[in-house]
């Protein structure tokens, strides 16, 4: 099969994705190296995190990503309506993520935990909240794409916008694939 020279979607979003990945990469490394100097602290407070919530969220993001894949497939099939529906489903899973994460934050905040509590919580809150903002941004992009798809703005011939939004959303998912084990599980 003939390979493409460029990744799907607008090339500019890929520059953005690379930049975002770089920021997250630096953040992950900072977490790991700081942990190496504070292992007991990190191990102790990691136990206070809700792994079940994190599981639900991981499943939500993966599922959402999969729905976006279906949306891209639908528009390649020239089916705007189906594309729109899959995007709505993906957005719903994004919403699930936000609600569950919000519940986790609520739990921590009600215990009076904040950025100054200790280094572990500083990283936990910073990393997950930075990612949280990306979920919101990704959802805004998906919503814009979905609304355009609904009015038939894309077709099998021209659907760069769908692929662009999809690529960004997969990046949000990709980052969480590392964040989840790193912050919630690895000890």
């Amino acid at each position: 099969m003939e390979k493409n020279k460029w990744p799907p979607g607008d090339l500019v979003i890929w520059f953005f994705i690379m930049a975002e990945l770089l920021v997250f990469g630096v953040f992950f490394a900072a977490y790991a190296f700081t942990r190496a100097n504070n292992i007991e602290l990190f191990n102790e407070f990691q136990l206070t995190l809700d792994r079940n919530a994190a599981l639900i969220n991981t499943v939500a993001l993966i599922t959402s990503s999969y729905f976006v894949v279906r949306a891209v497939a639908a528009i390649r099939d020239d089916n705007s309506k189906r594309c729109f529906h899959w995007l709505l489903a993906a957005l719903f899973m994004g919403l699930v993520f936000l609600v569950v994460k919000g519940y986790e934050y609520h739990h921590h905040f009600s215990l009076g935990i904040n950025l100054n509590t200790n280094t572990f919580y500083m990283f936990y809150l910073s990393l997950t909240f930075f990612h949280f903002l990306h979920v919101i941004l990704g959802m805004i992009i998906l919503l814009a794409v979905a609304l355009k798809a609904r009015t038939g703005g894309y077709s099998a011939a021209e659907h760069t916008g769908v692929e662009t939004g999809a690529s960004y959303w997969h990046m949000v998912d990709l980052v969480w694939m590392i964040l989840f084990p790193l912050v919630y599980v690895m000890r």
Binding site: A19, A30, L115, N116, S126
Partner: peptide, 19 residues
């Protein structure tokens, strides 16, 4: 200011050259 600024400041401003 609180200590987390050292992390936030370092990580995010290190990315300022990107744009």
């Amino acid at each position: 200011t609180p200590e987390f600024w050292q992390w936030w400041g370092s990580i995010f401003s290190a990315m300022e050259p990107i744009p």
